[in-house]
């Protein structure tokens, strides 16, 4: 049983009709992906690539035009599949009239928690996201980062086995981002599967076991992060405080005595995933498709 995938998307196609005149937009086309139990999966892609649509289908907020999505073996159309899911939407808004604690109790009750269990769980979650001091304040007075954290707490309230995060650090300051990153790592430690959508590559790179790169509704590349970004025949040298003269001499050395080695580039290091990402989706030619 435990090898059932947390999320299984098979040949998902989602088509939106634009008008009566048979104009359609294909948001997602024949997309398949698997989030294994216990892993952190990052789905990355530019705006409008179909990330959110895929996520909504997984959550049952949309029905697939073709294909299937399952959460721990239960079809996403069945509301009971949501039992195992904790979801944090992008820039979440909750009921502004509720306090932090009331918000958690509300979502906890929706998941069937009651009484002391609910109370303890809410307190535990408030502690987890470091909002104990703000638990009696209404959400109307929360900052963006606090809303994101209370959002994460409500997503975790019923001890879900899968956490779905949509741009979890959008609009959150660096310290807040770091807190959220630490929380994701903690979830992973606890064996909870995480399905993450983001365009913040650095973040994905830091926490994800596997990534899928999506563009124009299609999966471009999917695999273990390590495998995706490793380039076997290249070597990276990172220098600190190197003068231009030194670089020029190193380059000269490579060209003269490299024995076939080619100087590819120099400059300030970029994250390797970002490079891959731009290679796959970022070129202008792709957009016409």
């Amino acid at each position: 049983m435990s090898d059932t995938a947390a999320v299984e998307v098979r040949n998902l196609t989602k088509v939106f009709a634009l008008s009566l005149r048979k104009q359609y937009v294909v948001a997602v086309e024949d997309l398949s992906l698997t989030v294994n139990a216990g892993e952190v999966y990052g789905l990355i892609g530019p705006n409008g690539s179909g990330k959110s649509t895929t996520m909504k289908v997984v959550l049952g907020l949309m029905a697939p035009s073709k294909g299937t999505t399952k959460v721990f073996g239960i079809d996403s159309g069945d509301f009971r599949s949501r039992n195992a899911i904790g979801f944090l939407p992008e820039n979440p808004y909750f009921y502004r009239h509720l306090t932090g604690e009331e918000t958690l109790r509300f979502y906890g009750k929706l998941c069937g928690l009651r009484g002391r269990d609910l109370k303890e769980r809410a307190a535990e979650m408030l502690a987890l996201v470091d909002l104990e001091g703000a638990k009696d304040r209404r959400l109307a007075g929360y900052s963006k980062g606090m809303l994101q954290r209370i959002g994460l707490a409500q997503a975790l309230i019923q001890r879900p086995r899968l956490v779905v995060l949509d741009e979890p650090t959008a609009g959150v300051d660096p310290i807040g981002s770091r807190k959220i990153r630490d929380l994701i790592l903690k979830l992973k430690e606890d064996g909870i599967s995480v399905f993450l959508c983001s365009h913040l590559l650095e973040q994905v790179q830091e926490v994800c076991d596997r990534v899928g790169i999506i563009a124009h509704g299609r999966m471009r590349r999917e695999g273990r992060l390590h495998d995706l970004i490793a380039v076997e025949d290249q070597t990276e040298i990172v220098l600190e405080g190197a003068s231009p003269e030194l670089l020029a001499r190193v380059r000269e050395l490579v060209e003269k005595e490299g024995g076939g080695a080619v100087w590819r580039r120099s400059g300030h290091p970029r994250t390797t995933l970002e490079r891959l990402f731009l290679d796959l989706v970022g070129t202008k030619e792709n957009e016409g498709k």
Binding site: M1, S2, T4, A37, G38, F72, G73, I74, D78, F79, R80, S81, R82, N83, A84, C111, G112, L113, R121, E124, L128, L156, Q158, R159, P160, R161, L187, D190, G191, I192
Partner: peptide
């Protein structure tokens, strides 16, 4: 269906208990 989800306790979750039945 809810049976399946309650018996899924393969991984220890944050609270040490499996998700609830719906």
């Amino acid at each position: 269906m809810s049976e399946t989800s309650t018996t899924h306790s393969g991984q220890p979750s944050a609270g040490g208990r499996g998700p609830l039945r719906a």
